[in-house]
């Protein structure tokens, strides 16, 4: 097997990376972050990207999520060649296909839990009533119906992250990308959030790509991909 090419099992790939490279420049100095990444992630996968700091895992996640562009190679996600999309098309694509879960939750502090979850739906063609129904549905899914009118400051860290997950799935995206989703949580809340993500993967078929340093968190994934100095190092199937 090519060191940069992994087979994560059968199934149609939802994410296909071919020769992906990403470099940053400091004045004239090129700093390569990712080099020649070839990777196919099948629909319904739960992948943990792991590796030391600076290995390029968050950069890889950002590329897959369409919030950054590669400097080389091609990237096909959810049937779209992301290189071909302009910024506005890419934004619309993200709204439809990707849900984001951040380490620090990144909820809007002046909006209630309900309104935070509703935010991505403002960009859809759904009417007000349909939006409200959909928001109520996902808040029930993350078990936060009773906290829907609370502001983020009135929620615990675990509750905030569950609101963030509800916001990520409210548009029913194909892929969830999570950057250290449990990094700011205690063990109990981390376990709860990871359990929720596991259910979203198992029950709703969401493809999840998660960056984590935490082996316990990575254990919830079905595959672990390790990066080392900008290249794929190894892939491990998680045995439970």
């Amino acid at each position: 097997m090519n060191a940069n090419r992994f087979d994560l099992g059968g199934g149609e790939p939802i994410i296909t990376l071919r020769g992906i490279a990403k470099s940053y420049w400091r004045e004239a100095l090129e700093i390569p972050v990712l080099q020649g990444i070839d990777l196919e992630i099948p629909v319904g996968s739960f992948v943990a990207l792991m590796g030391p700091s600076g290995s390029g895992k968050t950069t890889l996640l950002n590329l897959v999520a369409g919030i950054d562009r590669p400097t080389g190679g091609t990237l096909e996600v959810c049937g779209h060649e992301l290189n071909d999309l302009d910024d506005d098309e890419l934004a619309a694509w993200r709204n439809t296909h990707v849900g984001f879960i951040f380490q620090n939750y990144n909820l809007v502090p002046v909006l209630t839990a309900f309104e935070n979850v509703e935010l991505p739906l403002l960009l859809t063609s759904l009417g007000r009533r349909a939006r409200r129904e959909r928001v109520a549905e996902v808040l029930a899914l993350v078990n936060l119906t009773d906290k829907q009118w609370n502001y983020p400051r009135q929620l615990s860290g675990g509750q905030e992250q569950r609101v963030a997950i509800a916001r990520a799935i409210v548009t029913d995206p194909d892929i969830l990308v999570a950057d250290e989703p449990t990094g700011a949580l205690d063990a109990k809340n981390a376990e709860e959030v990871l359990g929720l993500m596991g259910r979203l993967n198992a029950d709703m078929g969401k493809t999840i790509v998660m960056v984590t340093h935490d082996p316990k968190a990575a254990h919830h994934a079905r595959h672990q991909i390790h990066l080392e100095k900008g290249v794929l190092d190894r892939a491990v199937e998680v045995n439970r």
Partner: peptide, 15 residues
């Protein structure tokens, strides 16, 4: 950060 989150969620820069 909030602006970046909005854009990540699909809000275009012009919006």
């Amino acid at each position: 950060a909030e602006i970046a989150v909005f854009r990540a969620m699909g809000f275009s820069a012009s919006r």
